[in-house]
Write a protein that binds this DNA or RNA. Structure first.
Lengths: 350, 350
DNA sequence: TTGAAAGCGCTAACAA
DNA sequence: TTGTTAGCGCTTTCAA
């Protein structure tokens, strides 16, 4: 159904052989400039686009990348997709997607059958699949190049990218401390996600640096869901010693905290400061809007793709950056602490 | 890189010709049952998967469908994607995606170059692209089969699917009336989206049916954004005669209304009922959670794909349903009207 | 009902 | 530096 112009048409218009056209198309050496120009002119005149299927068939390539994800955060996924697509298009690759459920019994079976059924040149894994050993082994055994976004364990002979979650969580905690908070609670994310640990680490690091003892009563286990945010908030806010700030490791949970605060008539931010993570739409659409951390999701997708393509082409990818920085997004849910400080800080606060 | 077993291996194992294998694979007639079984057994034994590229090259098919979208609602898009993927996989099609910006100058240019550059058997259009005349003409001129989700104008010789937006808006308005509200404001969506008009129609239809005059002061132009929801809410809630209920034609805008209500110290739902549309995550994660309308997005994607595939295969698609029903999702943002009714209803309210 | 041969559009190997 | 030929894995003639 598509353009019927083939490489042969171009060849005859440019008065060269098909192989020469092919050479020009693929930037192969050993073609005189004059030839190149003649071919390029013909390509342009005919609006010729090489047929990827034929190309792929011959070269045992498909120019298709596969994104496998199991993630309930649509904002994140769509943004990653966009990054992958943009880089892919730049290099002539298309994207195929496989949403799946990482808690499913037959996850591996499903991924296997997908990988066998439709050819692709490489695979991109997002959290929490980036750390799924079975999937990684599957890819290794099938010799399919892959790249991982935000894996916990980055040791591998495959590329990965990630954002500096620990630093971002550190920065956020430091920001809360700078607002005068010392009783800062933390709601952890799902234990299956590697960022959960990194964010917790950043939180503890900041407290530590300012001489605040991490109070275990202030650290609760969430699961990245709204409900788990509510649940943890209820626990935190019914303790005898209540935190003056709650840092939830994603926005969903922060929104849950906000809901509970309202139900308990705790005004935000006057009586309680809330911070989230991810800068998803909900963080902007609740009131007060939630102070949060913005990951460079688009760039992560793009960079992961660039590395993957380099890996596929046996080019170097080690020189490309691996860790990108996050930004704090300051909104209304965080304000200076109004409570009388219960603790003396070891260091002056910025 | 993929499985190296070819149709030839299957043929020699089953002791038949390649053509016979091909026939069995494609369910062609004129193959004896015994043969079919022999071939199928060999296929299974070798775990043979036909190479789609070779298949496509020969048959001038790609088994790839393209979803083109320009939509800021990630929940919607991801859900549609899932529906398309599931149906596609059932019928052996893969999905390719092209996010774009429908307000961009060079939208058509971009879409054109994409369609020319990568082969696909069919295209799926979501709002607001479903009504983009230029894109439709482009597809027609290139003879690319397409299907549209929720187009305003469904007249075409191409398939479409949609949800009964008018009825859903009617149902929601009726629900608000049944709670005793008569001063019900409506925030319209983006004028480029066809559902905007249908939702308005449903709203007016319900008012009309219950003898409530549609007060033009109560109908505001929004743009499906949070900010436009805020803006309209501010207008509505600063008028001398204030509505007791606001029906925003999507959740984003409803969240904007909720924010303004809180800022103005109007408690929801006690003093103001709010309803949204779309059942996106934000409607669940604000407090109070927003009463809204749930479209069968996944099913729309699936059905649209089924129809498209039938169209591609020159099968009948007219017999498949086109319009699916929506559901009301009742949450805490709507409650019985506490204001003294300012109007007398023409009919008894349910 | 089955099979042999040709060829989809491109690139790798070889030849000129 | 350029061109010729074969063939990737499959399906479509056409013949048996």
């Amino acid at each position: 159904m598509n353009s019927k112009i083939t490489i042969r048409d171009v060849a005859s218009l440019a008065n060269v052989s098909v192989k020469t056209v092919s050479r020009v198309l693929n930037n192969e050496p050993n073609v005189r400039i004059a030839m190149q120009e003649r071919v390029n002119a013909a390509v342009k005149e005919l609006n010729f686009k090489p047929n990827p299927q034929a190309r792929g068939l011959r070269g045992n390539k498909s120019f298709i990348l596969t994104l496998i994800y199991s993630n309930p955060n649509p904002d994140y996924i769509l943004e990653v997709q966009k990054g992958i697509l943009d880089q892919g298009h730049e290099d002539g690759y298309n994207l195929q997607i496989l949403p799946c459920d990482h808690t499913s019994e037959n996850l591996i079976e499903m991924v296997t059958s997908f990988l066998e059924g439709s050819p692709q040149d490489g695979v991109i894994l997002t959290l929490p699949l980036s750390d799924n050993q079975q999937i990684i082994e599957l890819l290794e055994s099938k010799n399919i190049p892959y790249t991982r976004i935000s894996p916990l364990n980055s040791e591998s002979n495959s590329p990965f990218v990630g954002s500096d979650d620990q630093k971002a969580a550190y920065d956020m905690t430091r920001h809360l401390i700078s607002l005068g908070h010392t009783d800062i609670a933390f709601i952890k994310g799902h234990p299956d996600h590697s960022d959960t640990h990194k964010r917790l680490l950043g939180y503890k690091q900041a407290l530590n640096e300012y001489g605040i003892n991490a109070n275990e009563q202030f650290i609760k286990q969430g699961y990245f869901t709204f409900e788990s945010g509510e649940y943890c908030a209820r626990q935190l806010l019914s303790q005898p010693i209540k935190p003056t700030a709650i840092f939830a490791s994603n926005d969903c949970m922060a929104a849950g905290v906000l809901k509970v605060s309202k139900q308990l008539n705790i005004s935000v931010p006057a009586m309680l400061t809330i911070a989230g993570y991810d800068d998803t739409s909900v963080s902007q659409q609740v009131w007060p809007a939630i102070t949060t951390v913005k990951q460079p999701i688009y760039q992560l997708g793009k960079l992961a793709t660039k590395k993957l393509i380099n890996k596929i082409k046996s080019l170097d990818y080690e020189k490309l950056p691996s860790i990108l920085e996050c930004d704090l997004v300051l909104r209304e849910s965080a304000s200076p602490c109004s409570a009388i400080p219960r603790r003396i800080l070891a260091h002056e606060v910025i």
